[in-house]
């Protein structure tokens, strides 16, 4: 049986690891490479790395740093932030990324998703959506680190991304990001009901029960989280134990020595 994944998200900005609240007021939480090493040593299920600098400045993603990170990673990792074209994706894949997260550029150039899926396969294209609840109660899509309201409905956009060939949807609630108040269950459920590809829930995890809830009540295939791991004593391994106790199937880490 396929296991529910617990995925630490690492945001890096100008060489350092950061974490914000509502995509703003970034706090430094340390250097990136040691964090990658620690998560690899702890044998987490998967990692997501987002280059905030590239996302905000429009620079090309830093594939040289990605290459350093991948050297330390015996587990799958997704790289995102500022990805704009197939050439950049190729550089990131060659640098060792397993999957590429595409966000802002998909709004101006949606055909890039089709082209990327055709070239690299759907399985390595993660469509990332940053969503915020609007005054009318619907969820809207925001680009460029939540700075621009695109004017698109999240559910319709998620469907379009999946139809174009995205292999997974990484769905982040801007409202909940960094708050540790729990995932936006209504948001996640609206998307998991609408698409047939796996949905990674992101934004708001503050305790293990939040993770259990977004899987059980909202149908998430994986849970991404950052603040809970940076700022509390809670760990990915602890999350998996709690999820297992709640009856959710999680990966059992292989603990033997290689012989």
């Amino acid at each position: 049986m396929l296991k529910v994944r617990v995925i630490p998200t690492l945001l890096w900005k100008d060489f350092g690891l950061v974490k914000g609240v509502g995509f703003d007021s970034w706090r430094r939480v340390g250097p990136v490479l040691p964090a990658v090493k620690v998560y690899n040593a702890r044998d987490v299920d998967e990692l997501i790395l987002v280059d905030i600098t590239a996302s905000q400045t429009g620079d090309a993603p830093d594939h040289i740093s990605v290459s350093d990170f991948s050297e330390e990673c015996a587990i799958p990792f997704t790289v995102g932030g500022g990805v704009k074209n197939l050439e950049q994706m190729l550089l990131l894949l060659h640098a060792g990324a397993d999957k590429i997260a595409i966000n802002s550029v998909a709004y101006s150039d949606p055909a890039l998703i089709d082209a990327a899926a055709a070239r690299f396969g759907s399985q390595c294209i993660v469509a990332s959506i940053d969503a915020r609840k609007l005054d009318n109660g619907n969820y809207g899509c925001f680009s460029h680190s939540a700075s621009i309201n695109i004017g698109k409905d999240v559910v319709n956009w998620a469907k379009e991304l999946a139809d174009r060939g995205a292999g997974e949807i990484l769905l982040t609630s801007i409202d909940r990001d960094g708050t540790m108040m729990g995932y936006d269950l209504a948001l996640v459920e609206s998307v998991t009901r609408a698409v047939d590809v796996p949905v990674i829930a992101s934004g708001g995890a503050g305790n293990y029960q939040h993770m259990i809830d977004v899987v059980e009540k909202a149908g998430a295939s994986a849970v991404a989280a950052a603040s809970i791991f940076h700022f509390t004593e809670q760990t990915p391994a602890g999350a998996k134990l709690a999820m297992q106790a709640a009856g959710i199937q999680v990966r059992r880490n292989y603990i033997g020595n290689i012989q």
């Binding site: 396929l2 296991k3 994944r5 299920d45 292999g167 047939d196 796996p198 295939s221 012989q259």
Partner: peptide, 25 residues
């Protein structure tokens, strides 16, 4: 009839004991 692609960690069940699986439960 599940979500495609099949992404993530899944259990691998042996149909025969093989050289490739030595030491791996």
């Amino acid at each position: 009839d599940l979500r495609i692609p099949h992404v993530g960690w899944n259990e691998v069940h042996y149909l025969s004991q093989d050289d490739l699986f030595t030491f791996i439960p």
